[in-house]
Deep mutational scan, measured.
Amino acid sequence: MKGKVVSYLAAKKYGFIQGDDGESYFLHFSELLDKKDEGKLVKGSMVHFDPTPTPKGLAAKAISLPLE
Rank of each mutant, 00 (worst) to 15 (best):
A62H: 15
I63S: 00
D20P: 06
T52H: 14
F29G: 04
Y25T: 01
Y25I: 02
M1N: 05
P53M: 14
L67N: 14
G44A: 04
D37I: 08
S7N: 12
V5E: 02
S45I: 15
P51R: 07
D50A: 14
D20S: 10
H48D: 06
K13H: 10
F26P: 01
D34V: 08
L33C: 10
I17T: 01
D50Y: 15
F49D: 00
F29Y: 14
L27R: 00
D34T: 05
Y14Q: 05
L41K: 01
K36I: 07
V47M: 03
L65I: 13
F29M: 06
L32G: 01
V6A: 09
V47E: 01
G22C: 07
V5M: 04
K4I: 15
G15N: 00
I63G: 02
T52N: 11
K43Q: 09
P66R: 13
L41H: 01
E68Q: 14
A59L: 13
L33H: 05
K40F: 09
V5H: 01
G15Y: 03
S64P: 01
K56N: 11
Y14S: 05
G39Y: 14
S30K: 11
S7D: 06
I17H: 01
A60P: 01
S30L: 09
Y8G: 01
Q18N: 08
P55W: 09
E68D: 12
Y8I: 08
L32Y: 02
D37G: 06
F26R: 03
E31I: 02
H48A: 12
L67K: 14
S7P: 00
G39V: 14
L58P: 09
I63H: 01
L67V: 13
L65E: 03
G39P: 14
A60C: 03
E68Y: 13
V47A: 04
L41N: 01
F26W: 08
H48F: 14
H28T: 07
D37F: 08
E68L: 11
L41E: 01
T52A: 14
S24L: 15
Q18E: 10
K40A: 07
G22P: 00
S45T: 15
K35R: 09
M46C: 11
D20A: 10
S64Q: 09
T52V: 14
D50C: 14
L9I: 15
H28D: 06
A59K: 14
K43E: 09
L65M: 12
A59T: 11
D21F: 03
L9G: 08
K12V: 08
L9R: 12
V5G: 00
K36P: 04
V6Q: 09
L65R: 05
S24Y: 14
K43Y: 12
F29Q: 07
D34H: 09
L9V: 15
I63N: 01
G22W: 03
K13D: 02
L32F: 04
G22R: 05
F29H: 07
K40W: 07
A11S: 13
K2F: 13
S7F: 15
D50R: 15
G22T: 04
F16E: 05
P51K: 07
L65N: 03
L27P: 01
F26L: 05
S24G: 06
V42R: 13
I17N: 00
P51A: 10
L9S: 15
Q18C: 12
P53R: 14
T54K: 05
L65C: 10
V42Y: 09
P51S: 07
P55F: 09
K35G: 07
T52W: 15
T54P: 02
G19A: 05
D34E: 08
K40E: 05
K4R: 14
P51D: 03
V5Q: 01
K56Y: 12
P53S: 14
L33P: 03
K4T: 13
A60K: 00
G39H: 14
D34A: 06
S45L: 14
H28A: 12
A60E: 01
V6C: 11
G22H: 05
S30R: 10
G19Y: 02
D50K: 15
K56Q: 11
S64A: 09
G57K: 03
K61F: 10
D20W: 08
F26C: 04
F29L: 10
E23K: 14
K36Y: 08
E38D: 04
